[in-house]
Amino acid sequence: MALQLPREWRWRQERYRLIGGRCRRCGQAFFPHREICPRCLGEDVAKEQFSGRGRVYSYATVYKAPVGFEEYVPYVVALVQLEEGALVAAQLTDVDPTEVQIGMPVECVLRRWRTNGPDGNIIYGYKFRPRLES
């Protein structure tokens, strides 16, 4: 597989720490960060590290994986609505597909996304799991 080192490296802070954005004008939180608010189109936006806590907004169990993700099948992907309001697409981890429900509380953890083959780089990023009791 092609090494895309700059491309994967570029997002490290956003992926490791779930850094998104918030519009200072309308208050909308969004992930990822961008220069124009997706709700009000305002351009006064700031980066924000999200809490990582949220709830499952929708989910699906993948049985036919794209190249690079075969070793995880079956795995659950989800749209997670963060406490801050932003939606994030991500894999769920440490969960059986039958346990997942819309509205289930989840929290962000750092996990492997995939590897570029046995001698390639390892790509890490956010996933979500059922929230632990503290």
Partner: peptide
Amino acid sequence: AGPDEDAITMAVE
């Protein structure tokens, strides 16, 4: 460890 875990991910948590 699960299939998406390693010493790094566990160290971070």
